[in-house]
Amino acid sequence: MSIQHFRVALIPFFAAFCLPVFAHPETLVKVKDAEDQLGARVGYIELDLNSGKILESFRPEERFPMMSTFKVLLCGAVLSRVDAGQEQLGRRIHYSQNDLVEYSPVTEKHLTDGMTVRELCSAAITMSDNTAANLLLTTIGGPKELTAFLHNMGDHVTRLDRWEPELNEAIPNDERDTTMPAAMATTLRKLLTGELLTLASRQQLIDWMEADKVAGPLLRSALPAGWFIADKSGAGERGSRGIIAALGPDGKPSRIVVIYTTGSQATMDERNRQIAEIGASLIKHW
């Protein structure tokens, strides 16, 4: 067993022997301040990774656009098919120029040779490549099948209805392509620590998230040296922004954090800054 596999296998073990965790309302004060600064709703939840206990939450059962955070769930569904012998990570998928959609920095470079399922998941999570996500959605049967996968996990809230990039439209009061912070946090925890996926697939999923290259201005910008984070960000229309993450000190994750916002007129930089400040408060009061 590799060191990384050992780390993920012992996530519940280490967490069980940690000192009790206590909620700190100071972080919620910052979440509410972010709402004021952005002029928009902000949803927040913080779960203990081992027990699933909610440590703090704000608007945990209000719907927010998922945006690209759905790509972690998508690759979880792909990995479940791999575990069941219905898919192979090494299978190569070929596609054409007509398949390319807006923001496809990886797939646009491989029109000639195609990409493997493993490479597509890596591109979808680490670079948020939209064509990679659409190609992977095709392998599982489309958005409705991802929703069905989530329902089978016990998540009857999260739903995907459309493809990239239309799913980022974020129309107010439109339930399409949305989740709730509580539902997303619980589902992410199941994917990373539950028995739904094999140990190898859980490790692969967290490795992809740990290698995320496009979430630097968010929670990662607030992390002290030595902290662990595996995350996936999302951005959408109407001032929408979000991030889902597993993080913790001492090089291992111990909490799940989900943050979503929508309806702001603020710039992307300002949305990023507010999420980073929430992260800084979380870490300060850990």
Rank of each mutant, 00 (worst) to 15 (best):
K32R: 14
L47Q: 07
G90F: 10
F22Y: 10
E277W: 06
A235Y: 02
T186N: 13
S240H: 06
D161Q: 06
P172W: 09
H24L: 10
E164G: 00
R159P: 00
G248N: 03
Q265I: 13
L150D: 01
L218Y: 03
R63A: 07
E61V: 12
D250M: 12
K53W: 10
T112I: 14
M153H: 10
P217S: 10
Q204W: 06
L135K: 05
P65R: 02
G39I: 09
V78F: 04
A148V: 13
T158F: 07
D231N: 05
A225P: 15
L137S: 06
L120Y: 02
L28S: 08
I171A: 15
E166P: 06
Y95M: 07
A246M: 15
I3L: 13
M115K: 03
D231C: 04
P181A: 07
L196F: 13
T131F: 05
F22H: 15
A23R: 05
R159I: 06
I45L: 12
A34H: 03
V31W: 03
V257E: 02
E175P: 15
V257W: 02
L188N: 02
K284P: 03
P249T: 08
L146W: 05
S264C: 07
I3T: 10
E145G: 15
A84V: 13
F228H: 06
E35W: 01
G194K: 09
E56W: 05
L197N: 05
V214L: 07
E61D: 14
F22K: 09
A235W: 01
T131E: 03
I275V: 12
L120D: 00
D174E: 08
G216S: 09
R91Y: 06
N130C: 05
G242Q: 02
N272C: 04
N130L: 01
G85Q: 10
V257I: 11
H156F: 10
R220V: 04
I259D: 00
H156I: 15
R189Y: 15
T126D: 07
R159Y: 06
M115A: 06
D83S: 06
Q37A: 15
G242W: 00
M67Y: 02
I45K: 01
V21S: 10
D36C: 14
T69A: 03
Q97C: 08
A235Q: 04
D99N: 09
P143K: 03
S80C: 09
I171M: 15
H94A: 11
R238M: 14
M1W: 01
L28P: 05
P224C: 05
T193E: 14
L247D: 00
R81I: 06
S96I: 10
F22E: 15
T131S: 12
A245V: 05
R92M: 10
Y103V: 05
E61G: 15
R255Y: 02
T112D: 15
P60R: 12
V117H: 03
G90I: 11
L205H: 01
A170Y: 12
L146Y: 06
D174G: 05
L89M: 11
I54C: 09
P224E: 06
V72Q: 02
F6Q: 09
L223W: 03
N152Y: 15
A211H: 14
L79D: 01
F14N: 02
I275C: 05
G216M: 10
L146P: 00
G90L: 10
T193P: 01
P105E: 06
P12E: 06
S68W: 00
A16I: 10
G142D: 06
P65V: 04
M1G: 00
I3M: 08
E270V: 12
E46A: 10
A15G: 15
V72R: 00
V258F: 02
D48P: 02
P12K: 08
F149G: 05
H94Q: 13
L247R: 01
T107F: 02
L218T: 04
N168R: 03
L191E: 03
L191H: 05
M67N: 13
R238G: 12
V214C: 06
V21C: 15
K32N: 10
W163K: 11
L218V: 04
H151N: 13
F64K: 01
A182L: 15
L10W: 07
M268H: 09
E166N: 13
L192G: 02
K71N: 00
Y260H: 01
G234Q: 01
S221V: 11
I275G: 01
C75Q: 01
M66W: 01
I243Q: 03
I275R: 00
L196V: 14
T138D: 12
I283H: 05
F6A: 07
Q265G: 15
P60A: 15
D155V: 01
C75L: 05
W163P: 10
A225T: 14
P217T: 11
P224F: 03
S51L: 05
D161W: 03
L160D: 02
R59V: 01
D83Q: 09
P25H: 13
N98A: 14
S128V: 00
L55R: 09
A266D: 09
I275Y: 05
R159Q: 09
L160E: 02
A16V: 15
E61M: 14
V29W: 15
Q204I: 10
Q274A: 13
L55F: 10
N152L: 11
S122E: 15
E169A: 14
L192A: 06
W208I: 03
L188P: 00
W286Y: 07
D207G: 14
S240L: 02
K232L: 00
L136W: 00
L135A: 06
T158C: 03
L150Q: 05
L192Y: 07
L192M: 15
I259V: 13
A215L: 03
Q88R: 12
A183W: 08
S2E: 05
D83G: 05
F64E: 01
L136Y: 00
D250E: 14
H110R: 10
S221F: 09
E195Q: 13
G216C: 08
A185Q: 01
Q4D: 08
A276V: 10
A183H: 12
G76C: 06
N152P: 04
D207E: 14
L111Q: 10
T179W: 00
V42K: 00
I3N: 14
T27A: 06
V31P: 01
V101N: 07
E169D: 13
S122Y: 14
E119W: 02
H5V: 08
A185C: 07
Y260A: 02
T138H: 15
G154R: 07
C75V: 13
D99I: 09
A245P: 00
T126H: 06
P20S: 08
A230F: 02
A215T: 06
F6N: 10
L79S: 03
I171G: 14
P65Y: 03
F6E: 06
L146F: 11
I229S: 03
W227M: 03
R255E: 03
R271D: 06
M153D: 04
M268S: 08
L28N: 07
E46V: 09
T107R: 01
K284N: 12
L196C: 14
Q88H: 15
P217C: 07
E195R: 12
A34I: 10
K213V: 11
R271S: 09
I206D: 04
R238Q: 12
L188R: 00
A34F: 09
A40Q: 09
T69Y: 03
F22I: 07
Y103W: 15
S254I: 10
T107I: 05
K190D: 15
M66V: 14
L49Q: 05
T158H: 01
D113R: 11
E46F: 09
G263D: 09
P249A: 08
S264N: 07
A124H: 00
A246S: 09
I259E: 00
D155C: 02
K232Y: 00
T27R: 03
N173C: 14
D174S: 07
Q86S: 15
R202G: 07
R176W: 07
L192T: 07
V42H: 02
R81S: 09
R202I: 07
C18G: 10
E237Q: 14
L79C: 04
K30P: 03
R241I: 03
G114V: 03
V8Y: 15
C121H: 00
V106S: 08
